[in-house]
């Protein structure tokens, strides 16, 4: 697909390939991932209910969800495929738009001053790369069990989480990672809704940004409370 719409395309084809369509794709996939994170966060809180409850949740997620609508074990793969597609499309549109922006600005200012840009908006691109890198580590750790630090997987997800988050620097690493994730969401949530047309007035802008802060903070606290509890021995 060409970066720049060419004259050989019909207006409709150009519109489908336009920067705005790419942004909309990025917005939809981003919101999908935020939705997943909220669900993930809720699932994590099962750790507070004890080993049996958490392991049952993990098993249910992997095997029984949507059963008998789908055969056992199918849902998780469909879900993983959707999430993988979302991630790939999100990154694809981000990189394409990044490249366009680079091409659009051949020179930079000698004196540079921003009036509106937030730190999270400024760090969307490099921040996105960093958090994607850590996502790979996270998946390798808790999904594939390839990079478990505390020891090999014993069959109990509860025990695995417990032993990994007993390591102080692991909790610190996740605390930092979640900062990058939640900063990304801080701008991303607002930006996604603006891209999808929800920024209808200056007031809507305030509301959307407030929601973005709320979701980002909720996710940060929601995700970090469990590892911290494990580290300080409040769980297990």
């Amino acid at each position: 697909m060409s970066l720049v719409a060419t004259t050989t395309l019909t207006p409709h084809q150009s519109a489908v390939r336009s920067t705005v369509a790419l942004k909309a794709l990025m917005a939809v996939t981003g919101l999908l991932m935020i939705g997943f994170l909220l669900m993930h966060m809720f699932g994590n809180s099962k750790m507070f209910l004890g080993e049996e409850s958490f392991n049952h949740y993990a098993e249910w997620l992997k095997v029984e969800m949507l059963y008998p609508l789908l055969p056992k074990g199918w849902f998780i793969w469909i879900f993983r495929a959707v999430m993988a597609a979302a991630i790939v499309l999100h990154i694809y549109s981000a990189l394409t738009l990044w490249r366009r922006a680079k091409l659009a600005s051949p020179a930079t200012y000698e004196a540079k001053r921003r009036l509106a840009q937030t730190y999270s908006a400024r760090t969307m691109r490099w921040g996105g790369i960093i958090l994607a890198g850590l996502l790979i580590f996270h998946l390798a750790q808790f999904t594939v069990h390839a990079t478990l630090v505390a020891g090999p997987f014993t069959g109990s997800p509860y025990q695995m989480v417990l032993s990994e988050f007993k390591i102080w620097w692991m909790v610190a690493l996740y605390a930092l990672w979640m900062v990058t994730v939640c900063m990304h969401i801080r701008h991303g949530f607002w930006s996604a809704f603006a891209t999808l047309g929800a920024n209808t007035s200056p007031k809507a802008q305030v509301v959307l940004n407030a929601c973005a802060w709320a979701v980002a903070l909720l996710l940060y606290i929601g995700f970090m409370v469990m590892p911290v509890a494990v580290l300080f021995g409040w769980i297990g």
Binding site: V20, A104, A121
Partner: peptide
């Protein structure tokens, strides 16, 4: 909108990231 946006993109302007500058 289809035609104006196609021209906007073809002229080499970047995409919007809702920053507000």
């Amino acid at each position: 909108i289809k035609k104006m946006l196609a021209t906007h993109d073809a002229e080499g302007f970047g995409g919007c990231t809702n920053i507000g500058e």
